[in-house]
Amino acid sequence: MGSGAFAKGHGTGNDFVLIADPDGAAPLTPERVRALADRRFGIGGDGVIRAVRAGSTGDAVLDEASPGTWAMDYWNADGSVSEMCGNGVRVFVRFLLESQLAALADGEGIDIATRAGVKRVVRRGELLSADLGPFELGGDRLVAAHGLEVDRPGLDVSTGNPHVVVALASTEELEALELHAAPVLDPAAESGANVEFVVPGAIADGVGAIRMRVHERGSGETLSCGTGAVAAAMATRHWSGDAADRWIVDVPGGRLEVEVDERGHAWLTGPAALVFRGEGIGGGVSQAP
């Protein structure tokens, strides 16, 4: 990809601007990220991802990975950096593959450095599956949101970044939510948190199902959140008494699958696609085939 080139990609509607910068020559800044992610005056996206080799990122955490490892320098749309993005890491690998910066046969994997550690992404046919590692269940908080008549309890879940998961009683409650404003947490999360609202469904043949909507820290409501899908599945698994290790998560942008392996690692599987490429990221943007 030439100077000023970019790609736009998404995973179940969670969309990103992607830039290749292998040698770390063009660091991101909050101002640049906000401009690129702006849906009216920029390219538009829930976040911006820079592909850079570990050792050249300028970020001490990313540069802890083995030199030469591809690092996902991920920023939220508001210009804040984020530890991890489950949809983003799959779209990032799709970007590497289609830009011929990496190659994967079916069943092969690649290590990606993130601010939440090195994550393994495996190609499974047309889908990509990311090992997001172990998760951690925490304490409870009260959550207030527009559209909820009373505050609801939420469970803290860490998947490398912070989440609070709230169970609702019905699809009608889920659809009535107005997530234009961030839900209010009591007590407040020190560094903020993504908030997932879920409606648990049936568990059959060891597979559970849930529906989810999410308000992402730094991005607002998004059509999907990969680490949020993991958090929602693991919270629901906990509430069910660990009744299933595989969960189907339906989000407004599509469907994801979460599975817990024998090590207690959560795997996130789903689609990842690039929808267009362009030139001129430093100034005006023009679409390219």
Rank of each mutant, 00 (worst) to 15 (best):
A188C: 06
A188Y: 07
A167I: 07
V184D: 03
A193Y: 07
P162C: 10
A181E: 14
A202E: 15
L155K: 13
I203K: 06
G192Q: 09
E178I: 01
N161L: 02
D186V: 09
L168V: 02
L179Y: 14
D186A: 09
P153L: 15
A182I: 07
P200R: 13
L185H: 12
G201V: 02
P183W: 06
V164D: 11
R213H: 03
G192K: 07
D156Q: 10
V164Y: 12
E172W: 00
E149F: 06
P200W: 11
E172Q: 10
P153T: 09
G208I: 10
E175G: 02
A167E: 13
G160H: 05
T171L: 11
H163Y: 04
V198C: 12
D151M: 14
E172F: 00
V199I: 12
G206D: 06
V165Y: 08
E149A: 15
T171D: 15
E175P: 00
N194P: 06
P162Y: 04
G192D: 08
T159M: 14
A204P: 00
A202W: 00
T171S: 15
V195P: 00
V199R: 00
A167N: 05
L155I: 13
P187M: 10
E175S: 13
N194K: 09
P162H: 11
G160Y: 08
R152S: 04
V199L: 05
A181S: 12
V198D: 01
E196C: 13
V207Y: 02
V165K: 08
A182Y: 04
G206R: 08
I203Y: 08
V166S: 07
S158K: 08
S158R: 15
E196V: 06
G206W: 14
V150H: 14
E173I: 03
S158C: 06
V166W: 04
A188D: 14
G192I: 07
L168S: 02
A202R: 10
R152W: 02
V207I: 14
A182F: 05
V150T: 14
A193C: 04
L174K: 04
V166N: 09
A169N: 07
M212N: 02
A181C: 02
G208F: 05
T159P: 01
G192W: 08
V165M: 09
N194Y: 05
E172I: 00
P187K: 10
P200S: 03
L174C: 06
D186E: 14
G192A: 06
G154W: 03
L177G: 07
G201I: 01
L155Q: 15
A204W: 01
H163V: 09
V165H: 08
D156P: 08
G154I: 08
S158T: 12
P153H: 07
G160C: 12
A202N: 11
P187A: 08
T159W: 11
E178K: 02
E196S: 10
M212K: 10
S170D: 02
G206N: 14
R211P: 00
N161I: 07
S191L: 13
P187H: 12
E172M: 01
A176F: 03
V207S: 01
D151N: 13
G206M: 13
L185S: 13
V164G: 06
V199G: 01
I210G: 04
V184K: 08
P162V: 09
G154Q: 10
